[in-house]
Amino acid sequence: MALLSKKDTGLLLDPLADNNPITIQVLGICSALAITAQLKASIVMAVSVMFVLAVGNVVISLMRNIIPSKIRIIVQLVVVAALVIIVDQVLKAFAYELSKTLSVFVGLIITNCIIMGRFEAFALGNGPYRSFLDGIGNAAGYGLILIIVGFFRELLGSGTLLGFKVLGDPIAKTGLYAIGYENNGFMLLSPMALIVVGIIIWVQRSRNSALIEEN
């Protein structure tokens, strides 16, 4: 017996590509872009969102029959806010430097549209197990884009990955720098995140013409 039926696998894998939360559903861009100058921050953000979205989806899904629909937004916000406080406190305790880099953007997971979007679109109408898978899948799709953007911005912007100098030492002129390569400091500035995401969208849509918009 397979642990995941075909439908469940779809829940997990669709958001990675053809139904990606960032490039297709246009959700969760707010906090995605500002923190991608470093790969490490992107990974931490992706993991935090995965925790909040998966647990939140299960909680909302368990409560879906007792939440009056008129106040559901407030209930959802309270659930997310509680989870985000947990993430924030854990980060402050175990990765203080990183939580300073992420600053307000951890708090902004609360209003990350991807979370409210999945609660509204999925968790309110499905059981806890499938909601959990949906949460993991969507957060993974979100994290994937974050990590791709973080990878390119850190590699081209500061010549490092996760803090390791993969392209050589810019000061001692070793590695690529010995032949005159220079870091593109522009990649570290926030506008480049938008342009990198734009290029990802371009690549993805030119590979799959079904995703192209009318105008």
């Binding site: 490039t23 246009v26 734009g198 969208i201 371009w202 690549v203 993805q204 849509r205 030119s206 013409s209 995703l211 192209i212 918009e213 009318e214 105008n215």
Partner: peptide, 8 residues
């Protein structure tokens, strides 16, 4: 370019 239309 078609793949860039809209969001891109």
């Amino acid at each position: 370019p078609a793949p860039l239309r809209g969001l891109g």
